[in-house]
């Protein structure tokens, strides 16, 4: 029988939303780091034909999926302040966009 309380929980959707923001942020950070330190760019050059791009995106995807798994398990049956989580997500996505913008990451 379905748990009526569980149906009201917004934790799982907030977890998916916030994890996406974290994934975007990590992509922005790793892009700046790879630009600032050539050694990092070389270290994440997992597949030579794509250069560091493949590694940057792989790191971001792993961070996103790990964050989603952790937050989902934590908020599986919880309700969170959705408005606050949405604002945090927008900030993380915004920072991710900034970090992946060439005029910004070329500063490093």
């Amino acid at each position: 029988m379905a748990n009526p309380q569980a149906e009201l929980n917004n934790g799982p959707v907030a977890a998916a939303m916030l994890a996406a923001g974290i994934g975007c942020l990590v992509l922005g950070i790793i892009t700046c780091l790879a630009q600032a330190r050539k050694a990092i760019g070389a270290a994440i050059n997992f597949y030579y034909p794509t250069g560091p791009l493949g590694g940057k995106t792989m790191v971001a995807i792993v961070a996103w999926l790990v964050a989603w798994a952790v937050l989902s398990s934590k908020w599986k049956e919880a309700s969170v302040d959705f408005g606050k989580m949405f604002m945090v997500t927008l900030i993380l996505v915004g920072l991710g966009l900034l970090g992946s913008f060439p005029l910004f990451f070329d500063l490093f």
Partner: peptide
């Protein structure tokens, strides 16, 4: 870089 934000 920015393209990868779309699928996430």
């Amino acid at each position: 870089h920015v393209a990868w934000l779309a699928p996430i």
